[in-house]
């Protein structure tokens, strides 16, 4: 695992909580992501997903532990790691287009102005923003439109690693579907690696090669790594017919509904804390997990 494209080793994050004991968000988290892989992470609100992502982006320093990308330690932000922030983080004084050209010009300093604008316009169009809308300031755009500008800004820069923090949270089902397809298209055509936070189980199954499951904090852990045993290309309408779909879905829901709580706060002590790999496949009939998650009746939806 140490040879992974992105390898996270014994990551611990504590925050001083003002009075007395520190808040330990997660401890000794270790996992790897392969080049070209699409990984989603699921976990309840506040378990530390954004914190992990900020560390991967190089924006925050972990209390201890290291992140290696291509064998090199991540010690600060880089254009190789593009981020779609949970709160969009657009510059409110720039138009939608300028928010994107700002990023593209930073990535490709040698490009002519016209080329930068053309490239940016193309990516804005890809997320469905055209015409007059791209000249408006973020305050004059809807939440979903803002989110799309922020997606265009990250995609336009072709980073080696795309870090997405709930990138589709504010979108309606239709736009969400379109942009998910665009994301798969962009990702499929390149060597890009994607690490995405989401609260939507179905979205994760549609997009990911692997889903990481986090237990609740404090002392959250990346407890499981669930392989999505549904072949690509996947179509939204077709994957639900796949025999593995509900097997996986129920496993995820069961984890989020019950086990994320049961497993939370369990400190495994020192040493490696790698997630358990779960491979559920009806075709092979040899699921590595004995428990049959399909029988978990008291499932709780986590995405209201």
């Amino acid at each position: 695992m140490a040879h992974s494209f992105l390898s996270i080793e014994n990551l611990t994050q504590r925050f001083a909580s003002g009075k007395g004991e520190d808040l330990t968000v997660f401890e000794d988290a270790s996992f790897g992501i392969e080049k070209g892989e699409f990984v989603c992470i699921l976990g309840h609100s506040g378990c530390g997903k954004s914190t992990i992502m900020n560390i991967l982006a190089g924006l925050a320093e972990p209390t201890s532990g290291v992140v290696l990308m291509d064998g090199k330690e991540v010690s600060g932000p880089s254009l190789d790691r593009g981020v779609v922030f949970q709160n969009y983080s657009l510059m409110p004084w720039l138009s939608a287009l300028k928010n994107v050209t700002f990023a593209v010009a930073a990535r490709y300093p040698r490009w002519s102005k016209a080329k930068v604008v053309e490239h940016s316009t193309q990516y804005l169009a890809m997320v469905g923003l055209q015409g007059d809308a791209i000249h408006r300031k973020p305050a004059q755009l809807s939440g979903g439109m803002r989110q799309r500008v922020s997606i265009a800004r990250a995609f336009a820069n072709h980073p080696k690693l795309l870090l997405l923090d709930e990138p589709f949270g504010a979108l309606d089902a239709l736009t969400r579907g379109t942009i998910q397809d665009e994301l798969l298209k962009i990702w499929g055509g390149t060597e890009q690696t994607v690490f995405m936070i989401t609260h939507d189980v179905d979205e994760a199954i549609l997009l990911a090669d692997r889903i990481l499951l986090m237990t609740n904090g404090p002392y959250a852990r990346v407890a499981e790594s669930v392989e999505i045993t549904i072949p690509r290309p996947r179509k939204r309408e077709e994957i639900i017919e796949h025999p593995n779909y509900y097997l996986i879905r129920n496993h995820l829901l069961h984890f989020l509904g019950t086990r994320s709580k049961v497993l939370s706060g369990q400190r495994t002590g020192q040493g490696s804390n790698r997630p358990q790999t779960i491979r559920l496949d009806r075709m092979e009939e040899t699921a590595t997990e004995s428990e049959d998650p399909a029988q978990a009746t008291s499932l709780r939806a986590v995405n209201e």
Partner: peptide, 12 residues
């Protein structure tokens, strides 16, 4: 801080 972070991720 968010805007500074955007600048940082773009290596300004």
């Amino acid at each position: 801080k968010d805007w500074i972070n955007v600048a940082r991720t773009h290596e300004l």
